[in-house]
Structure formats: C-alpha cells, structure tokens
C-alpha cells in the first residue's frame, strides 16, 4: 500500500473517531459518557497526528501524542473525581441537573418527561478482602456506592 493511501486510511479512521466523539459529546447528557466522548475526540486527533508524523517521516507527531496521552491521563483523573463529586451531590449523572449555575433570571431548561429507567440489579462488584473470611453483611453488600 502506498504511503498516501495509508495516510488516507489513518486520517479517515481518525476523523471518524473524532466525529463520533463530537456527536456523542453533543447529544448525550450522561457525565461519564460525555467524558468518554471527549476522550474519543482526543484519540481521533492523536491518530491523525501519528499518521502525519509517519507520512512526513518526522517524530514530532509521535512525541506530541505521548504528551497528549500523559495530559489526558491527568485530566481523566481530575475529571472522574469531579464527576464523582457532582454525582454524589445530585444523585444522578445527568448534566442537566447542574443548570442552576446559569445566569440569574434565566428560565431553566425543562425536559420532556423521560421514561423511568428500568431498575438495574443493584449488586455492585466489590473487591473481596484477601486472606480472611468476609463477614457478609447483606445491607453493606447491596448498598450503592455511587
């Protein structure tokens, strides 16, 4: 495969990733999903950087990508901590719950009635303590940690 064709393929995949991420970011309201979409946009850009780097036979594209990954890791740590805090506060991951940071006097955006989510099993996986017999407390076992 010629270098140009390879570049085209990579750029195509990168732009698909970016477009998907952008679309997801725009239309989803779940905090974690929005965060994942943003990451996906980042990866799309990273991919195209690498493709260009290879095409020009230049390492700076790769170098930049490593840099992006490092920063994205830090950002992910902070963002997930924030998401966790926001979620604890409002009891839900919906971004619309935070529209009270709007300008004073502005009417809030009100959804159409959303169908209630089907109740999932609330059994969340937990790590088993090593070495000892876990004292299985039914209450503790089924308590939501989110």
């Amino acid at each position: 495969m010629s270098e140009t064709a390879l570049l085209q393929n990579y750029l195509l995949v990168g732009s698909i990733l970016f477009a998907l991420g952008l679309t997801g970011f725009l239309i989803r309201r779940n905090l974690i999903v929005m965060f994942l979409c943003a990451e996906m946009m980042l990866q799309g850009v990273s991919l195209s950087l690498i493709a260009w780097g290879r095409y020009h036979n230049d390492w700076s594209g790769q170098m930049l990508v490593i840099f992006i990954i490092t920063v994205a890791a830090c950002e992910a740590g902070i963002a997930l901590a924030l998401v966790l805090a926001l979620c604890r506060k409002s009891g839900s991951l919906d971004i619309v719950n935070w529209q009270n940071v709007r300008e004073e006097g502005r009417m809030p955006y009100i959804d159409q009635e959303v169908p209630a989510e089907a109740m999932e099993s609330e059994a969340w996986p937990t790590l088993t303590p090593a070495g000892i017999e876990p004292a299985t407390d039914q209450q503790e076992l089924y308590r939501s940690n989110v």
Partner: peptide
C-alpha cells in the same frame, strides 16, 4: 443570557 447552565 447566553449563560444557560446547560453544558450541551
């Protein structure tokens, strides 16, 4: 008034 508080 552009500050709606809606991230989307």
């Amino acid at each position: 008034y552009l500050q709606t508080g809606l991230l989307p």
